[in-house]
């Protein structure tokens, strides 16, 4: 079953067409890397799927539930609020700049949504939170506040926070871009471990080596369209597409 189906997704900001008929699918357990130059619409695509931005047209299905469908005269017709909420809980999003809640300690950052949104009791949520922290190698930081952590540690907490809701798909928007180069490794390692556990993930990244290593599917976007997609070998190895070549060239230099 495909976990995510995107058909002809389009989105404009004013007269600026940022997404033009984007279509792709993500299968269960797949790790998809989305690459492309700045301004190509990668973030906007993730934000539309995560309901932080309203799409203008197209169809998106998540775990067999329809988020919106193309209306008769073009626009996107969204599902009822209840369905949208259900879909929201199936997807998780990890931000470039973490967006942790500064007034909560690390554990509370992770447990707050399970407790308030899923109505889990606090004790169970904390047990699960501690488990996730252990997995992230941060057991000793449960009582720390975000400002006391390094960027890499903060990003690992934010991954734990997203995982605490047990999402079916996890989206990452450049999870290492706000980090010092020496800290990106610890995040990539965590994502790699999640991939080994067959977590379904869509990762927007500028780390080409990582994309090649971890992803089993690569999407190259430019100017609001998907220029090319395929296995890492197809895209990185021997692409015949001129624009992909040009883009990758810049990363090899």
């Amino acid at each position: 079953m495909s976990m995510l189906e995107v058909r002809n997704l389009s989105k404009s900001f004013g007269s600026n067409k940022v997404l033009k008929d984007i279509s792709f699918e993500v299968e269960k357990g797949q790790v998809v890397a989305v690459i492309g130059p700045s301004g190509s619409g990668k973030s906007t695509m993730l934000r539309c799927i995560n309901q932080l931005e309203k799409a203008d047209g197209g169809t998106v299905n998540v775990c067999g539930m329809s988020m919106f469908t193309a209306g008769e005269n073009g626009g996107a017709v969204y599902a009822p609020a209840k369905t949208l909420r259900e879909i929201r809980l199936k997807v998780g999003l990890v931000f470039q700049n973490f967006n942790l809640f500064p007034h909560f300690n690390v554990l509370r950052n992770i447990t707050e949504a399970p407790v308030r949104v899923l109505k889990m009791n606090r004790k169970d949520a904390e047990e699960k939170g501690m488990e996730l922290l252990k997995k992230m190698g941060l057991s000793d930081k449960a009582k720390s506040y975000p400002f006391e952590l390094s960027g890499g540690q903060q990003q690992r907490v934010s991954i734990a926070r997203a995982l605490a809701l047990s999402p079916e798909i996890l989206f990452f928007d450049e999870p290492t871009s706000a980090l010092d180069p020496e800290l990106t490794g610890e995040i990539l390692k965590v994502i790699k471990e999640l991939a080994e556990e067959k977590m379904t993930m869509v990762i927007v990244t500028h780390e080409m080596a990582f994309a090649r290593d971890v992803a089993n599917h690569v999407i190259f976007m430019d100017g609001g369209v998907i220029i090319e997609e395929g296995t890492p070998d197809e895209v990185f190895g021997n692409t015949s597409n001129e624009r992909t070549k040009q883009f990758l060239q810049r990363f090899l230099e």
Binding site: Q51, L52, R88, N99, V117, L165
Partner: peptide, 10 residues
């Protein structure tokens, strides 16, 4: 980002 993180968490 605080609103967005909160919204994304449901």
């Amino acid at each position: 980002g605080q609103y967005e993180a909160s919204e994304a968490l449901g």
